[in-house]
């Protein structure tokens, strides 16, 4: 995508990048891109795997491509989105092949390396043949990343893997020639395989993030029926022009944004605006593209098309929010950035110490070299690749059991840190469907329900449902008529009734309206017989959860597109003190961003809980997006966590699950590094024998896996 900014020749270009696996990769590509003549600024995002480059004049794509290639990655320029998807799918497939092949090879190498355990004695040359592809084909990316890292003067987990496995591999080759003793082909192969497996699981989870946008695009109508010269013709959506008159029939989607010029209808806008009740639309009212026409047929004039429609704006916001999401700071990488240089220095110190103080050697300093390699091998924590993925896997499995679907690991990591939680109103705090809440006199229900049988009004459905529940006997209605915008009327027996908007409002009606309820009255002639109030009701358990969150010192907010009165009524019922009402769908994400920055030098970690399409940008913009499973697919795709369980308490469960999982991850990393840290001095002083090294490797891996499995037993 190219955006020209201003009359000068400043050009902005964004393109996807493939092959990044940590935040430092992004920094490296940025550096490489800014070195290209003509490039003023480059910003690379690890989360969205894309680069934005600001250039003076037009720098050729080849130059940009080769700059990225020099850094060790691939840029996809001048290709459609599909090819980016294809590239990603290809990469995932490649990784899968590597995991499968290296698993098989490593297993054979492992079994063959321990004849005393498995009784199979394999020739060292055979082990070398099997271990070589694992080391240099499956593990090649680690070498590339290490090289890139060194050019950036950083050490990451990759450096550690390359150092440890290469030391083990080349030491084993020397051992084949009798220079030293002991074989470590198995160590090298197993470490690479386990870490690749962890990477594969992570990449697979990450590949779903663009589904939300695909779903949003799928919501658009494909065609529009335009009215021209008295004829109606179906044309593709892309051919619709501003000012075109478009016919929409019942059950169809409104193709673009516009204003009704003829006819009227009820339109279900809940997908876009979050408004729970279908909205009554008459001539002059504006309609939103992709909403569903419920009852009537109407003609409207297109006012906004293409990228200007509300849905397109929402798509843009979701894209933006997803790409600005902060990259996950990997704990292992952070530890490695200190750990690796220290280990390197220790290994040199070991060599010097043994050379100067050790037994006198003539020719090759065997002891000093053996102990240098021992330090490097033992420093490479085999279990490190398992520490996070196993805990996340068990944690997400446990969550799924309880109806908490975790889409990306980052959300599970973040949710326990939240100190502000924002709830959408409709469908999240409330049930999202209108229900009868008050009936002034039970006798009027028979008449109202009988009248409503012929009505298409959405509130009518709520009254009919209520009447059936109360086992009301329906009566025959004649001369039924719906008066758009007012109500319905009909004759039962010989009496004429009207049911609809109240013309005069008494105290009791005003009080109900203040509670956010819609009140309708039944009249016989001029005499008012009674009223029925309908409202969207609060879900069970909301109040308890809000109180619990506040006890945990989490600030609770409610944000809604609904009017102040309804918002306040629901907030009062649920015990929420902070309310943002009349927030337009496009402003919800903005409000979340404001909340994130509002703190006085205190970092706010904001979670957003929502269900509608209008919530998608906010779900993506929040530190953690939590979607209600009863909501739309798009909301679920934009969120990091989906609560399938109707029980509102699952929000608390998700927070607890995150806490437990993070605790386990930290413990795992401790075990993964711990064994090795303890054994480094042993290796440096020449006390380490191969059996002890193998034992440490196996013990740290087993303790990490067992510790992760402990999550299954923890009560959340």
């Amino acid at each position: 995508m190219i955006i020209k900014t201003g009359p000068t020749s400043l050009v902005k270009k964004s393109f996807p990048i493939v092959g990044m696996h940590c935040a430092s990769c992004a920094r490296l590509i940025e550096k490489s891109l800014t070195r290209v003549p003509g490039v003023l600024n480059a910003s690379v995002n690890y989360g969205s795997e894309s680069a934005v480059v600001e250039m003076e004049g037009n720098v050729s794509d080849t130059k940009l491509e080769s700059a990225v290639k020099n850094a060790g990655y691939r840029a996809i320029l001048n290709k459609s989105n599909l090819s980016k998807e294809e590239e990603k799918a290809k990469e995932l497939k490649n990784l899968k092949t590597k995991v499968i092949v290296s698993s098989i090879l490593s297993l054979i190498v492992f079994v063959g390396s321990f004849p005393e355990w498995f009784g199979i004695n394999l020739n060292p040359i055979f082990l070398l043949v099997l271990a070589t592809p694992v080391q240099f084909w499956a593990g090649w990316d680690f070498y590339l990343a290490t090289w890139s890292g060194l050019r950036n003067r950083t050490a990451s987990m990759d450096t550690l893997i390359v150092m440890g496995t290469s030391a083990a591999f080349f030491y084993s080759i020397l051992s084949m020639f009798g220079v030293v003793e002991g074989m470590y082909f198995d160590t090298a192969a197993v470490i690479i395989t386990l870490i690749l497996l962890g990477r594969f699981l992570e990449a697979k989870a990450k590949s779903h993030t663009s589904d939300a946008i695909k779903k949003l695009l799928g919501l658009q109508a494909k065609t529009a029926r335009i009215v021209k010269d008295g004829r109606e013709i179906d044309i593709p959506l892309a051919d619709v022009k501003v000012g075109d008159l478009i016919r929409v029939r019942p059950g169809e989607k409104v193709p673009v944004d516009g204003v009704i010029t003829r006819g009227s209808s009820f339109i279900d806008e809940s997908m876009v605006t979050g408004e729970s009740l279908p909205v009554d639309k008459i001539v002059g009212a504006s309609v939103i593209g992709s909403t569903i026409n419920k009852s009537g047929s109407f003609i409207f004039k297109a006012t906004k098309i293409g990228s200007e429609t509300m849905l397109s704006q929402i798509i843009e916001m979701v894209k933006e929010a997803q790409s600005t999401k902060a990259p996950i700071a990997r704990m292992a990488d952070l530890v490695s950035s200190y750990f690796v240089p220290i280990v390197l220095m220790l290994s040199i110190l070991t060599f010097v110490g043994w050379y100067v103080l050790g037994p006198i050697t003539i020719g090759f300093p065997v002891n000093a070299f053996i102990n240098l390699v021992a330090v490097l091998i033992i420093a490479c924590p085999c279990a490190m690749g398992l520490a996070t993925p196993t805990a996340i896997m068990v944690g997400t499995g446990k969550g799924a059991e309880k109806g908490i679907l975790v889409k990306d690991a980052a959300s599970l990591e973040t949710v326990h840190k939240i100190n502000t939680i924002v709830f959408d109103k409709t469908g999240t705090l409330t049930k999202g469907i209108p229900m009868v809440t008050d009936v002034s006199d039970p006798k009027i229900l028979t008449i109202v329900a009988s009248l409503e049988q012929g009505s298409e009004h959405p509130l009518g459905g709520a009254i009919l449902g209520y009447a059936m529940e109360k086992k009301v006997k329906f009566q025959k209605v004649t001369n039924f008529r719906a008066i758009t915008g007012f109500g319905i009327e009909g004759i039962i027996g010989s009496k004429k009734y009207f049911f609809g908007k109240p013309d005069k409002k008494g105290e009791s009606i005003k009080k109900l309206e203040d509670e956010g309820k819609t009140v309708m009255i039944l009249k016989q002639g001029v005499k008012t017989l009674g009223f029925i109030a309908v409202a969207d009701t609060l879900k069970e358990g909301v109040k308890g959860v809000v109180k619990h969150l506040e006890n945990k010192k989490i600030e609770v907010w409610m944000v809604t597109g609904d009017n102040q009165r309804t918002a306040k009524a629901i907030a009062k019922l649920s015990g929420i003190k902070n309310v943002l009402a009349e927030v337009l769908p496009e402003d919800k994400a903005q409000k979340i961003k404001e909340l994130k920055n509002v703190a006085f030098k205190v970092t706010k970690c904001v979670a957003f809980v929502g269900d509608g399409i209008n919530d998608a940008p906010a779900l993506a913009a929040a530190d953690v997006g939590i979607a209600m499973g009863t909501g739309t697919d798009v909301a679920m795709e934009s969120a990091g966590i989906t609560l399938l369980n109707k029980d509102f308490k699952s929000i608390l469960m998700a927070i607890n699950l995150s806490k437990s999982t993070m605790k386990i991850i930290k413990q795992n990393l401790f075990w993964a590094f711990g064994y090795n840290v303890i054994l480094i001095p042993a290796a440096a002083f020449g006390l380490l024998n191969p059996m002890l090294a193998s034992f440490a490797m196996a013990a740290s891996s087993i303790s990490v896996v067992l510790n992760s499995l402990r999550l299954n037993k923890i009560k959340i």
Binding site: T154, P341, I348, Y355, V356
Partner: peptide
């Protein structure tokens, strides 16, 4: 101390210093 041991000691310390400088004393150019 024999000349070879002195050489290894000085070389080793130099290498350690280089590693320290390479990884920790940096990023002034960012």
């Amino acid at each position: 101390m024999s000349p070879d041991k002195l050489l290894v000691t000085v070389g080793g310390l130099g290498l350690m210093g280089f590693i320290w400088w390479f990884f920790f004393e940096k990023k002034h150019d960012n």
